Amino acid sequence: MLRTPVASSNLRSVGYDPQTQTLEIEFISGGVYQYFNVPAGVYQGLMSAASHGKYFHQNIKNAYSYRRIG
Score class of each variant (00 low, 15 high):
3 R>I: 01
3 R>C: 06
3 R>E: 03
5 P>F: 08
5 P>V: 07
5 P>E: 10
7 A>T: 12
7 A>I: 12
8 S>I: 04
9 S>T: 11
10 N>M: 11
10 N>S: 10
10 N>R: 10
11 L>T: 01
11 L>G: 01
11 L>F: 00
12 R>P: 03
15 G>R: 04
16 Y>D: 05
17 D>V: 06
17 D>S: 10
17 D>I: 05
18 P>F: 02
19 Q>H: 15
20 T>Y: 06
22 T>L: 03
24 E>Y: 07
24 E>H: 05
24 E>K: 01
25 I>Y: 05
25 I>N: 05
31 G>D: 12
31 G>M: 07
33 Y>H: 13
33 Y>D: 08
37 N>I: 10
37 N>C: 15
40 A>K: 15
40 A>W: 12
41 G>Q: 14
42 V>Y: 01
42 V>R: 02
44 Q>F: 14
44 Q>N: 15
45 G>S: 08
46 L>I: 03
48 S>K: 12
49 A>V: 04
50 A>N: 12
50 A>I: 12
52 H>N: 10
53 G>I: 02
54 K>P: 09
55 Y>P: 07
55 Y>T: 07
55 Y>D: 11
59 N>T: 07
61 K>Q: 15
63 A>G: 02
64 Y>Q: 01
66 Y>E: 09
66 Y>P: 07
67 R>D: 11
69 I>L: 08
